[in-house]
Computed example of a mutant assay.
Amino acid sequence: MTRLEHINMTVPDIDAALAFLAIVAPDYKVRKDIKPKEGHRWVHIGNNQSYLALQEPHIDAESPNQFHQTYRNYGINHIGLVVSHLDMIEQRLTDEGYRRGIGAPKETHRKRVYFFDQAGFEWELTEYISDHPDEMYLYE
């Protein structure tokens, strides 16, 4: 069986990314947070099934704080997480001022929302209403 193990992404502010993840993935824990003397900070945060490898821009990177335009140029378009209690997460993200991403249609067997974090990465958050694969992955 194949599953997503991790996504490695450079972010302009690791602490801001961790604050966003505290809302959308409360079961994720920091596995490692390293700042080498001669290097850049990186953090692995996740659970026993998957994790995100976050790293700060390299010192010699050109324009590290420029946002990528999703669906327009190369890079990550969005990151999908399966969550519990989507309505509660959606409300917290809205209350904290996070910007909504693309719209998702109303579906019978799952709920989805898209939000951008402070770095400009778009996240698809999905809560499945069914545990039957034929229903979970039905594209209505």
Rank of each mutant, 00 (worst) to 15 (best):
T2P: 11
L4S: 14
M9H: 02
T10L: 05
T10R: 11
P12V: 04
D13V: 08
D13S: 12
D15K: 12
A16Q: 12
A22L: 04
I23C: 00
V24S: 09
A25G: 02
Y28F: 15
Y28C: 03
K29E: 15
K32R: 15
D33S: 14
G39T: 11
H40M: 13
W42K: 09
W42R: 10
W42G: 07
V43S: 02
V43F: 02
H44W: 03
N47Q: 09
Q49G: 11
A53D: 08
E56D: 10
D60A: 13
D60Q: 12
A61N: 09
S63L: 11
P64D: 08
Q69P: 00
T70S: 12
N73Y: 04
Y74P: 00
N77G: 11
L81Y: 14
V82P: 00
M88D: 14
R92K: 15
L93K: 03
Y98W: 05
Y98A: 01
G103F: 06
A104H: 14
A104Q: 13
K106C: 00
R110S: 09
R110A: 06
K111L: 11
V113S: 04
D117Q: 08
Q118W: 06
A119D: 07
G120Y: 04
E124G: 06
Y128V: 08
S130A: 12
D131Q: 13
P133C: 07
E135R: 13
E135I: 07
E135M: 08
M136C: 09
